[in-house]
Write a protein that binds this DNA or RNA. Structure first.
Length: 218
DNA sequence: GCCCAGGTGTTTC
DNA sequence: GAAACACATGGG
């Protein structure tokens, strides 16, 4: 899989995730909002929070649920996500904030995140790598689609085994965190623009080594 | 009008 | 565990 990373980095350049300029909590908020939603809509929801000065754990915890939902409406599932954000915010405050969380070991921090309602594996790993700079690979729907088309996986493997196999190859040596950070972002870039449900193999930097591309050519 | 988007929790087998 | 379903907006 390392060659996939190298090829995408050459083709697309460093992605510099996470989008936005906030701290770990803001990353976590964005990660919840982006669940099954387009980032364009997440930006609107974040703007809705920002204009109300609600981008802090205390503010989200103390907001009226209906008003919080109205603020994040564009990202979809706003009632569900409002509840998830308040669960996140409450836990964040109770844990003692950024500094206390940053002091936890990665496995501890992951367990802490997964115990929060609405934080699943992918969201937790987003927060770990993009919020707390831990060497973690995020598996998402793009990852499964792209790796399956490349013939590298079946596609229905459990989340944790996919994560483990990518980390085993990419997390060796110096710069592991940065490499895993970029790899997921590059996969999203490819998935959004090229390796879509209807793939645009003509503009894919991986096409020369992709069975799906050869199939299309016929 | 229909499919898709940087998932998660619940229910049911 | 795995499959089916609910949750909802905005863009192509």
């Amino acid at each position: 899989m390392y060659w996939v990373y190298e090829r995408l980095l050459t083709a697309f350049g460093p992605q510099g995730w996470w989008p936005g300029d906030g701290g770990a909590f803001e990353v976590a908020v964005g990660a919840v909002l982006t669940q099954n939603a387009a980032w364009r809509n997440v930006e609107r929801a974040l703007a809705g929070l920002d204009e109300r000065q609600w981008l802090s754990p205390q503010a989200i915890r103390d907001a009226e649920p209906d008003e919080l939902g109205a603020a994040i409406r564009p990202s979809g599932y706003f009632n569900v996500k409002a509840g998830r954000l308040q669960a996140l915010a409450t836990a964040w405050v109770e844990a003692g904030g950024d500094a206390a969380l940053a002091a936890l070991a990665t496995d501890e921090l992951r367990r802490w995140l997964l115990a929060i309602r609405g934080i699943g594996r992918e969201t937790a790993d987003d927060v770990l790598v993009y919020g707390f700079d831990r060497p973690v690979f995020v598996v998402d729907a793009y990852t499964r689609r792209i790796f399956a088309r490349l013939g590298l996986i079946q596609g229905d493997e459990p989340y944790e085994s996919l994560r483990a196999s990518v980390e085993a190859e990419l997390a060796i040596g110096d710069g592991a965190t940065q490499r895993l950070n970029e790899f997921h972002a590059l996969i999203v870039a490819l998935g959004k623009d090229v390796c879509r449900p209807r793939p645009d193999c003509a503009s894919c930097p991986l096409a020369s080594d992709c069975p799906t591309s050869r199939q299309e050519a016929v």
